[in-house]
Write a protein that binds this DNA or RNA. Structure first.
Lengths: 212, 212, 212, 212
DNA sequence: CATGAATGAGTCTTCATTCAT
DNA sequence: GATGAATGAAGACTCATTCAT
C-alpha cells in the first residue's frame, strides 16, 4: 500500500500552497455571505476543515486574510481584459461587448460578484486594498478602455466622442448590476444581458448593415 | 425654586422627536465614518450629548438605529425627485440633468454619500432595509424615470429608445461616483460634473440648436 | 423601609472608590498567590464579586492593575518610615530597630510580603513601576537612612562608620527574609526577630549600660 | 556517498548530552531576559538552532526545562564554595571575602544573576525547585558558613558572635545586589565591591595590624 | 532522531444590552 | 425620563504539546 493514500489522510499536512488556497476559499465564501466583521476566524477554519490555530500559520491576522483575498481576485480578471483589448484587429464595440460578456460570466454569474461587493463595502477601511486596486486594476483597466474608446472615437463609431475621457462610465453598469443583484434581485429580477446590450447600443452608433 | 437654570434643563427632557433626530444624526455621522460594525452605541450617545442608556429609550437596538436611518434617508430625496419629474412641462433631458445636479449637490457633495455607500454595504444584511428601499424608493424612482424616458423616446430625443426599458442605467453613474469617491478619490480625482454631463450627452440626442 | 438596605443590595453600584479598592484587593491576593502571568482577570473579578467586564470599567488593562497596586503599596510604609526617622530625639539604633519591627509587623507578618516579592519578581518587566519605586520609595528611604546612619556615626555608635555610605545594607536582611519566607519557610523556619536583632547588634556598638 | 557533507551532518544528530546542554543554554538566556511565562518553547528551540519538537525529545515539558536549569545552576557554585571553606588553614574573614568575590565574578558579573532572580521569582511556584535548593544548596551552604563563622567566633574575630547562628545574613547583601541590579541599576549604580567590603568590615573585627 | 504543521484550550479585551438609582 | 455601572457572551489571537512524515 502506498503511504500516501490520498483519500483519508488528506486531513493532515497538505501542501502549504494548497492549504493556503483552501483557507482563502473558505474565507471568500464566508466574507461573501456575511461580510468581514460578521465572519469569525473559527468559522473560516471550520469551513476549511482545519483548526482555528492553523489559520494563523498561514496568515498573520484577519485583515491579512481579506487583503490577500482582494489582491488575489484582481489578476485573473485583469489578465482576461488585457488579452481582449490587446488585439487592434478587434472592433472597439466588440471589445466592450466582450468586456460585458466577461463581467456577466465571470463576475455576475459567479460568487465573485460577492467579492466585488465586499471590495466596495470594506475597501474604504483597508487603504492598502484600495490603493492596490487603484494602482493595479483601475489604472490599468481604465487606461486600456481609454485607448479602445479613443480608437472608436477616431473611427467615428461613438455616439459621443467625449466618452473617451470618461472610461469610468463603462464600468458603471457593471457596478450597478452587482449592487442590484446583492440587494434587490430577490424582489425584482434584473436582466443584465439586456442591460448591457442596451447600454452598448447607446454608446455606439450602429455598425454598417446593422439594424437600428 | 432650585438651582436648575433653564439652560441646564434644556439639556434634559427634550422633545422626544427632537431627541430621536439628534440620535439619528449622531448615528448617521458615525456609521458614515466607520461603518456599522465599527460604530459603538456609546459613541453615538456621546456624540448626541446623551447617555448610553438613553439611546435605548428611543430605539430597541443597534439594528433599529440603522434601519430607521436608512428609512429616513429616503423620503427627502424621493420628494425632490418626485417634484421634478412631476411637471410634464419640463423637457426629459432637463429633468435627468436636474436629477444629476441633485445627486451632486445633495448626495455626492454631502455626507449623505457615505450613507448611500453604507446602504450598498450593509443593505444585504438588513432585508428589512433592502425591501423598504425597493418598495419605496426604487420602484417609485424607476417608475418615474421610466415615464420620463418613455416620453423622451416618444419625442425622439433618445439616442436609444430601448433605454426606456432600462431606467436603472440612469442610476449607474451616480453609484459609480459614490463608490469612486469612497475608495479612490484620494488617489485620483473624479470630475463628477463632467461625468454626468458626458453621460447625459450620450443618452440624449442634441436638442434643437445645440452643437453636437 | 430604607432603600439602602446595605446588606443584600451591596452587590450593585458601589461607591466607585470602594469598588476600585475591592478590585485591587482581589488582584493583590491573586497576584500574591500565583504571580502576575498566572492570574486571570476573570479570577480577579470573581474574587471581587463582580463580572469580568467590570474590572475594565476601573482599569484599562491587566498591567494597569499591577501598576496601581504597586504604586498604592508604597505610600503607607513610606509614611511610617518617615514618621520614625523624623524625630531627632530618638537614638539611631532605636530608629533602625523600629524599622525592623515595622518590617516584621507590616510586611513579613502580612500579605504585603507577597507584594514585595512580586515587585522583586515582576518589577523588571514594568519599568514604570521600577522607576516609580526608585524615585518615590528608595531614594526617599535611603536618604532617610543615610541621615540616621550619619548621625549614628558622628555619635560613635556604629561599629563601622562606612555604613553611612551604604544604607542599602539596612534593607538587605529584610529582602532576605521576604525571599526566605516565600521559598524556604515550609522546609526550615527562619526566626526573623532573632535575625534582625543579631544584625542590629552587629551594626551598632552596645549602648552604655547594656549587656553585651 | 551522498551530498551530505560533514558540516551539514554536524548540525544533526549531535551527542544527546551536548544537545541537552544547548537547549538549556538557550532556555537560560531566554528565561533570564523575559522570565518564565514570557518565554516560548519555540524561541528556545530557535535559539538552540533546532526545531520546536526536538525540545520535547529532551525535556517532557516547559516546567522540566526550568527545573533542570535550576538544578544545574547549583552545583558549580556549590563546588567552589565547598572548595573554599574546606581548608581550615584559611582565615574566616578571607573565606567570606572570597565568597563575596565569587558572588561578584560568578553571579553579579554574569548572566547568572538573572537566573538567581528567576529562582527568587518563580521558585515559589516550583516546589520541586525550592525543595531541591533548600536541601542541596542552602542546607549545605549555610552549614559551611555556620562552621566558618563558628570558627571565627571562637577566634574572637567576629564583632558579634551571635552571627554564627544566623549565617543567612551572609547571603543578604548578595541577594540585595541581585535585586538592585535587576531593578534599579539603570537609575542608580550600586557599587557592589564597596558594598561587600563595607559589610565584611562590619562583621569582622579588624585583623591584627589592620587599621580600624 | 528531527521536524514543524496542526491542534484547541486558554486568556485578554470589547461592547450591546440591562436595570437600579 | 435619564443615567451609567454592571453584565457576560463573543471573538481575535497565542502557544504548549502532539504526531505524521
Amino acid at each position: 500500500m502506498d503511504s500516501h493514500t490520498m483519500a483519508e489522510k488528506a486531513r493532515k499536512r497538505r501542501d502549504p500552497e494548497e492549504r493556503r488556497a483552501e483557507i482563502l476559499a473558505a474565507a471568500f465564501s464566508l466574507f461573501s455571505e456575511r461580510g468581514f466583521a460578521a465572519t469569525r476566524i473559527e468559522d473560516i477554519a471550520t469551513r476549511a476543515g482545519i483548526a482555528k490555530g492553523t489559520v494563523y500559520l498561514h496568515f498573520p491576522d484577519k485583515e491579512a486574510l481579506f487583503t490577500s483575498l482582494a489582491a488575489g481576485m484582481a489578476s485573473p480578471i485583469l489578465a482576461r481584459m488585457s488579452a481582449m483589448t490587446a488585439s487592434d484587429a478587434m472592433a472597439p464595440k466588440t471589445i466592450i461587448a466582450g468586456l460585458y460578456a466577461l463581467a456577466e460570466s465571470e463576475i455576475l454569474g459567479t460568487d465573485r460578484r460577492h467579492m466585488l461587493r465586499l471590495l466596495i463595502s470594506e475597501g474604504q477601511f483597508f487603504p492598502v486594498v484600495a490603493e492596490f486596486y487603484h494602482r493595479n486594476v483601475l489604472s490599468v483597466g481604465l487606461g486600456m478602455l481609454r485607448q479602445v474608446l479613443q480608437r472608436a472615437a477616431e473611427r467615428g463609431e461613438l455616439r459621443n466622442p467625449a466618452l473617451a475621457a470618461m472610461p469610468q462610465l463603462i464600468f458603471a453598469p457593471i457596478l450597478m448590476s452587482v449592487i442590484w443583484k446583492s440587494l434587490f434581485e430577490p424582489y425584482e429580477h434584473l436582466d443584465t444581458k439586456a442591460l448591457f446590450e442596451t447600454f452598448l447600443e447607446t454608446l455606439f452608433l450602429p455598425s454598417e448593415g446593422e439594424d437600428s
